[in-house]
């Protein structure tokens, strides 16, 4: 089974133009999803996490529609078949 990651348009240049990529599932967490993403698409992953593997401040991550901040953050379990949605927060000027 796999996990689907939805890529915002602003980052599609780092995923070969794809707006949707998959990573292997099998009992992982949000951190694990991005570790797996980093192995294949490091230029994409570093836009989402800093070098301490923290999610960047103005990036929101949803698991099947729920903000991970309301769950267990990057330690939230991600079941096989789930969708991880990366969305730019409202910020800037």
């Amino acid at each position: 089974m796999t996990i689907t990651v939805l890529v915002p348009g602003a980052l599609a240049e780092y995923s070969g133009g794809l707006r949707q990529v998959t990573v292997p599932g099998g009992g992982t967490t949000v951190a694990g999803v991005f570790d797996r993403l980093a192995a294949d698409l490091p230029a994409l992953e570093r836009r989402i996490r800093d070098e301490r593997t923290g999610i960047r401040r103005h990036v929101n991550i949803y698991i099947d529609g729920t903000d991970i901040r309301t769950l267990s953050g990057t330690e939230t379990s991600v079941p096989d078949g789930a969708t991880v949605h990366i969305i730019a927060a409202v910020s800037g000027g």
């Binding site: 602003a10 980052l11 490091p42 230029a43 570093r46 836009r47 989402i48 800093d50 070098e51 960047r56 103005h58 990036v59 730019a88 927060a89 910020s91 800037g92």
Partner: peptide, 25 residues
């Protein structure tokens, strides 16, 4: 530095016609 997507350094070897960066930071 993008407000959303963090910092990077880009370089150009064609006087700015195109910009590149490594995959890793």
């Amino acid at each position: 530095t993008s407000e959303h997507w963090g910092p990077t350094i880009l370089h150009s070897d064609d006087l700015g016609a195109s910009w590149s960066e490594p995959d890793h930071a």
